[in-house]
Simulated scan of single mutants.
Amino acid sequence: MNRSELGAALRALRQASGQEAKAVARGAVMSTSKLSKIENGRTAPGVVDVERILTALGVSEEVTAEYLAAARAEATEAVAWRLYRRLGYHRKQQQIKALDHSMTLLRLFQPSLIPGLLQTPEYVRAVLSRKELSDDQLVRTVAARLDRQSVLYDPAKTLRFIVTEPVLRWLLVPPPVMAGQLDRLISLSRLPNVDIRVVTLTAPQDDVPGHSFVIRDDRMVTVETLHAELSVTDPRDVALYVGKFERFTSAALAADAMRDFLSALRDEFLREQETGWPAHTPSPNPGHDSE
């Protein structure tokens, strides 16, 4: 099966399962019209689309592997942020939740923002407020992101995060609120399936941060750029990101040393609250959602 045959093959799978298109679309977190376009060959499905459809259908691992191999014939896909805006950012969060549900290992490297799964409600709102959403859209998107954080408490998942020190000093929120965000990182780092590490500015390095990326298992990497989100599935390319993540893992603070570092920085922010916080309006930016 080649990539051009995927739509018809997915339709045949759905019909064989006896499920209606509406139910499968709902399970795959996509519109019924999008599923119809995929099944009829009018829209080329991406790897993420195929994986969500197969999960909704409940097919075997062997069938999943075969269909994903065909979907990965194009090793890198890009989806412009403007398309996610049209879809609705809360729907995007639901799609990511579906991906998180199907993985067992997440590795996230972030040199720009606190990772979405670790953000406090105040930090989430500060990040998403840059997107010029309506009040209703903002409320729905914040709620959808916070809902995703339930994966942190799933013992079947292993979640590894690396952030660089500037992320912890970047004041998207007032210092007291940032202190609360650091407290949350300290608390979450004690969960048995969560590993949070910090690359400090003073630590010797043999690599450079570059950009953020997320690795799910060893099968897909998601990269956020200013204009689009990239999905990388070629095993050779995925291995490059795994290697970079592991290099920073060995150079980062972990466990008690990391928590001591965060505690000291938190105390700095708490001392700053006496100096006041200047009024600030974040500039709109359609990209860098930090998942």
Rank of each mutant, 00 (worst) to 15 (best):
V194C: 08
R216Q: 15
R26W: 03
G210S: 06
T120Y: 04
A16Q: 14
V232I: 13
R247C: 06
R140P: 01
E224T: 01
Q181N: 02
V173T: 06
H211K: 12
F213T: 10
T120L: 00
W170T: 14
A179R: 07
A71V: 05
D256L: 12
D147T: 06
D206V: 15
Y84K: 10
N2T: 15
R160C: 14
Q137G: 04
A70Y: 04
R216F: 15
D195E: 12
L83Q: 13
S231T: 15
Q181K: 05
E274N: 13
E268Q: 10
H90L: 05
F269H: 02
Q273K: 15
T64P: 05
A126C: 00
R236A: 15
I114S: 07
K131Y: 11
M30G: 00
P176K: 02
L146K: 01
A75P: 06
A279I: 13
K131P: 04
L54Y: 03
L262Q: 08
L182A: 03
R3L: 06
A80T: 11
D256Y: 07
I38G: 06
M258E: 00
D207F: 13
T158A: 11
A251I: 11
S290H: 08
I96L: 00
L54W: 02
T141D: 06
V127N: 10
L226G: 07
R190L: 12
R145I: 01
V173N: 00
L10D: 02
P278C: 03
G7W: 07
A28M: 08
V29P: 07
A21L: 12
S283V: 14
D49K: 03
E74R: 15
L188A: 02
M220Y: 12
R247A: 06
A239H: 01
E268D: 15
S283G: 12
E268N: 09
R91L: 13
A251H: 11
